[in-house]
């Protein structure tokens, strides 16, 4: 008889793996990807493909070079690539998209130790780097290829900030995403479907998105802005559902998640209403990423070590 395996318990395991989680996220991003192809044309698919491929290749090559265990198979680089692409304008030159992907994977993720170790969200950080380096191409918005009502190709948020009433698209167009903006962020409907899928699959929990979006909505109400408009435009839904729920860069505790979401919401509103930039989601998430270790420490749950008779 062959030798019996000796191992420490447990001997049963979940079927979920890092890879299946990433596949779930990719599935959840599909509606938004489809929407972007419809709204902005085939070039959006090209950009998403370029980013995903360059992320995977960067990860593969870097790990080869450092003789680290290869993790390209876990598909997390694909997710990073897709999220980065979703945060770019469809007109971005391909080489800039590749550059952004390399920054995301090598500088933000791998140099900090790879999956699970990085403190900042790779896609968001890379987007901010691109925005600083190539502010021209990064804010070059084109109008959707579909027929639409808005006159100019300014993003809805920029339009709202400038108070150009006539160039603000109506709610329905906003909800369906038929307006200019980053290629994956415009269609609220698709993002909500994807987010719901992640919630149902228990890949993410409701705490961060609800706190984040809720804070933005409440603050908008408070400041006399159009609540629905603020929630559905810009990168809020994409950020709250897909980026503020990233595992390694956000707190794990229930209260930590809520604090994180509220923090993101407040910063977003601060930047949107009083800052020089029309959009603040990326910056707010990055800032809160930096605070994450402290929030985690602050909200750590006490072990059930017991004591007196209840």
């Amino acid at each position: 008889m062959s030798k019996l395996i000796s191992s420490v318990s447990p001997h049963f395991f979940t079927h979920r793996t890092t890879r299946t989680i990433m596949i779930d996220v990719i599935i959840a991003l599909m509606p938004a990807l489809t929407a972007s192809a419809v709204i902005f044309g085939w070039r959006s698919l090209l950009i998403v493909g370029v980013c995903a491929a360059s992320c995977v290749i960067s990860e593969f090559l870097f790990e080869k070079l450092c003789k680290r265990e290869n993790t390209a198979g876990d598909l997390s680089a694909v997710v990073t690539g897709m999220l980065l692409a979703f945060n770019l304008p469809v007109t971005i030159p391909v080489w800039q998209a590749v550059f952004g992907s390399i920054v995301a994977i090598i500088v933000v993720k791998q140099l900090f130790g790879g999956i699970g170790q990085n403190f900042a969200n790779p896609a968001i950080t890379a987007r901010i780097v691109l925005m600083t380096a190539f502010s021209g191409t990064m804010t070059h918005w084109t109008a959707p290829v579909l027929p639409h009502d808005a006159v100019s190709s300014a993003t809805p948020l920029a339009a709202a900030a400038k108070g150009i009433k006539e160039s603000m698209p109506p709610y329905l167009e906003l909800f369906l995403g038929n307006h200019s903006g980053c290629l994956g962020e415009t269609c609220a409907l698709a993002l909500i479907i994807g987010g719901a899928y992640l919630l149902i699959r228990r890949v993410i929990s409701w705490h961060t998105p609800v706190a984040f979006i809720g804070t933005v909505a409440l603050m908008s109400l408070f400041c006399g802005r159009d609540v629905l408009y603020q929630v559905m435009s810009g990168g809020l839904l994409l950020g709250a559902l897909f980026m503020a729920t990233d595992y390694s860069t956000t707190p794990h505790t229930k209260w930590g998640k809520i604090i994180f979401g509220i923090g993101c919401g407040l910063l977003t509103v601060l930047i949107r209403f009083w800052g020089n930039l029309p959009e603040g989601v990326s910056f707010s998430i990055l800032l809160m990423n930096i605070l994450t270790p402290y929030i985690t420490k602050l909200t750590r749950v006490k072990p059930l070590s017991g004591g007196v008779k209840a």
């Binding site: 793996t17 890092t18 989680i21 265990e69 993790t71 876990d74 997390s76 790879g114 999956i115 699970g116 170790q117 595992y247 390694s248 794990h252 505790t253 749950v301 006490k302 072990p303 059930l304 070590s305």
Partner: peptide, 16 residues
């Protein structure tokens, strides 16, 4: 595989 910091372990520990 490497820990992805998902927090599932802590979320399911009966003793917190």
């Amino acid at each position: 595989t490497p820990c992805i910091s998902c927090g599932a372990c802590a979320d399911h520990c009966p003793l917190r």
